[in-house]
Design a protein around this nucleic acid. Structure first.
Lengths: 175, 175
DNA sequence: CCAGCCATGTAAATCGTTACATGATTGC
DNA sequence: GCAATCATGTAACGATTTACATGGCTGG
C-alpha cells in the first residue's frame, strides 16, 4: 500500500515518466521506501487501469518515447483516502543487526570489519543527506513550501545516520 | 536469508520449540527482524529437512505436545557459512515517513495526531528496551557473556528510539 | 463462561527481488 | 569501441502477510 501512496504522492508534487519518477524516488522517498523500476512500472500500469493517473505518450527526438503520468482527479481523491488511514507502525528490518545478534561464533575482527564497512556507507549517506538538505534550503520560497514535508523526512534521515555512526563507534570499542 | 540466519542464531543461543522461539523472537531479534509463526514453523520444517536442526517431540501433560529443535553439527557449519557472508546494507522501510512525505494535502492537525501517536509507541518501546537492558545487566556473568552480541543490538534499538522521540518533538513544532 | 495462553499447522494472495530483454544516443 | 543514460517492459522466483483451522487448559 505504501508504494501506491508513494507514487501518488510523487505525482502530486509533479508529473513525470516512470523513468523520471524512479530517479526522484531514488533521491527522496527511496531513502525510506525502496522500489525497483519493474515494480514502479507495474504500479503505474495498475494506477492507470484504475483511472487514478492520466498518461500521455510523448515522442522525443533522439530518445525513446516516454509516457508522462500525472495525478487525475480520482487519483487525488484516492491519495486523500490513503492519507486518511493511519500509517502502520515502523518496522526495522536489518540484516546487519541479525548478523551481529548471531555473531558470537564469529571472530571479533570479522565483525569489526563488517561494522567498519557499514559505518563508511552511513557516512556517505549522511554526506549526501546534508548536501540535499543544503540544496533544499536554497530553493525559491514557493517551491520550498511545496517540499516542506519531504524536508521533514530528510531531517529524520540525517538523525538516523548520525545515530548509526555513533553506534558503530561504540560497537567498535566493544568488539 | 536473514530469517534462516536468525533461526539458527537463536537456536545457537539455546534450543526450543517453535512456539518458544517465536516468543524469544518477539523480545529480541524481532525488534529488527519480524516474522510470523507461519513463517517460523515453515522455516523450521525446511531446516529440519536439510538436517540443519535436530528435532525431538516432547509429550506434555495438560498441554499440547511440542517439538524441541536444536542446532545440529551441520547447522552450526551452515551458521558459520552464513555469518561469513557480508550483510546486505540496511534499508529503512517506513510507512509513516511515506505518509509524511506525501502529507502536504493533509490538515496539519491530522499529521500532528499521527506523529503524536507514533511518538507514544516509540516511548513505550524505549521503556521496554530499557527494562530489557537492565535485566540483561543482572544476568549471571556466564550467561551475560553469551548474550553480549544481542546486547549490542539492543543498544542500537535504544539509540533509535531516542532519535525517533527527538525527531517527533521537532516535527510537532514544525507542523 | 469467556478470554487468553499453549502449540501447531495449511492455503491463498500480495509484495518484492532478480534475471532476462531491447535499442538508440551521448561522452570518453 | 565501450560504458552509461534514456526508456520501457516480461517472467520466474522468493518472501511476507493474512486468513483459516484446531483444541485443551488456566485464570478471573
Amino acid at each position: 500500500m505504501s508504494l501506491k501512496l508513494a507514487v501518488l504522492g510523487l505525482l502530486d508534487l509533479e508529473p513525470g515518466s516512470g523513468y523520471a519518477l524512479l530517479q526522484r524516488f531514488r533521491s527522496s522517498l527511496g531513502f525510506f521506501w525502496q522500489t525497483t523500476h519493474q515494480q514502479l512500472y507495474k504500479e503505474l500500469h495498475g494506477l492507470h487501469e484504475q483511472g487514478l493517473v492520466d498518461c500521455e505518450t510523448v515522442s522525443q527526438e533522439s530518445r525513446p518515447d516516454k509516457k508522462v503520468y500525472s495525478l487525475s482527479a480520482r487519483g487525488a481523491d484516492e491519495l486523500d483516502a490513503l492519507l486518511a488511514k493511519a500509517a502502520s507502525p515502523t518496522k526495522i528490518r536489518d540484516p546487519l543487526l541479525v548478523k551481529i545478534f548471531c555473531g558470537r561464533r564469529l571472530q571479533p575482527e570479522a565483525l569489526r570489519a563488517e561494522v567498519e564497512s557499514h559505518r563508511l556507507e552511513h557516512e556517505k549517506t549522511l554526506q549526501l543527506y546534508r548536501v540535499l538538505y543544503e540544496q533544499m534550503g536554497k530553493l525559491p520560497a514557493a517551491v520550498r513550501q511545496r517540499y516542506h514535508h519531504p524536508l521533514l523526512t530528510l531531517k529524520l534521515g540525517i538523525r538516523f545516520e548520525e545515530t548509526w555512526l555513533a553506534w558503530c563507534d561504540e560497537v567498535m570499542g566493544e568488539l
